[in-house]
Design a protein around this nucleic acid. Sequence first.
DNA 1: GTGGTCTAGACCACA
DNA 2: GTGGTCTAGACCACC
Lengths: 121, 121, 121, 121
Amino acid sequence: MEFNDNLPIYIQIMNLIKSEIVSGEICGGDKLLSVREFSKQLKVNPNTIQRTYQELEREGLVFTRRGRGTFVTEDLETIKRLKNDMAGAIIENFILEMKKIGFNSKDIVKIVSEWIEKEER
Amino acid sequence: MEFNDNLPIYIQIMNLIKSEIVSGEICGGDKLLSVREFSKQLKVNPNTIQRTYQELEREGLVFTRRGRGTFVTEDLETIKRLKNDMAGAIIENFILEMKKIGFNSKDIVKIVSEWIEKEER
Amino acid sequence: MEFNDNLPIYIQIMNLIKSEIVSGEICGGDKLLSVREFSKQLKVNPNTIQRTYQELEREGLVFTRRGRGTFVTEDLETIKRLKNDMAGAIIENFILEMKKIGFNSKDIVKIVSEWIEKEER
Amino acid sequence: MEFNDNLPIYIQIMNLIKSEIVSGEICGGDKLLSVREFSKQLKVNPNTIQRTYQELEREGLVFTRRGRGTFVTEDLETIKRLKNDMAGAIIENFILEMKKIGFNSKDIVKIVSEWIEKEER
DNA sequence: GTGGTCTAGACCACA
DNA sequence: GTGGTCTAGACCACC
């Protein structure tokens, strides 16, 4: 994995994990990799992973059991809310960019529909 | 204007100008700022703007008249094609990100429609 | 090597390299001199060589491998096409000059044949 | 007319006049423009034209009649020899360039014939 | 080591 | 004034 220089690495890893949670790649209750293991895989400092898990816990997305590890929250409502929030950010940015190149709201709905249809053919 | 470190500055300026062309902020035949003037405004080296204009010319989006300046192409077909290409790239990326967090094609169309409606209220 | 003032240096160096490619002095896949090394040999600025290689790459005659160097294309078809194009330009110019001093097409073929025969004796 | 910086201007004008003589645009016995008139047309110093005519006279291609002007030689043999010399220089250079990009003598005759044929179609 | 980008500042031809 | 080219020298990412 390659990291972007402009965003703190721990934030980028948070986003990575969030994606996996909301997409269902990892489910409520699943155990995350240990700090040590994960830091080895990503070739980052263990402190960075520590910080990542800590922030995710502050957001209520994971919880830790001392001596057992870090686990994804089992509160499906929280996961659903996260998914909506992330989708909202992506869509908002998408609409912004489309308007920046001169499309209006009606155009956008239409062109997305067309694109999806074309993609499915 | 602030530049992102991950992309060459001349590419970012190209994108800036492309946005202005396809959105209609600058029209076919309009004169761009001179190399020196633009470089002063953006606080970059004149060579960087020179490179920007050169690449845009290579893409057929602008043309230069010696001793006169650099102008947006008058070929509306080219501009239209650019607009479609840019929109395509944005949409493609959008769909990719949405799928990454677990939405399928049908979800995406629906959620965009909802978002646009909500926005207009 | 000495450069003509009427043509940009990077174009002259491009032509130099093209000649070496089509004549087989350097072959498909061969590594070109590094930007720095070549600039030292020709006593020009490294940026000028950089520009040269960039334009050659744009024409599909060379490709670059990051951190490795710049190499002649391995597509023999491209090289063949280049050779034909260059020959065409030289011949066209030759015919033009001959006509300018009063030779017609038939004369030209004849005089070239004679010249070549004479040369081989 | 535009002059190349690398060759003395009077030589370039000599070549111009030689071309016109051998191509028959001006014939044996024809009067050349006066130094003053010609220098005005070409926007060069009259001394340059003076030098041009003087060198052409040294080569036996023109002669001057005091108070009358400068005239092309009436010796057709001289003109013919000049034409052959000029053709020889052009062909020699042509063959050199073709060999530089990897063609041999046989190739050259063949490709010229083809080119001329193609041109006449 | 490699190519790629950028800055700083110069000179040129053209209009 | 305009764009186009060139030099000098810096820093970067990649290998």
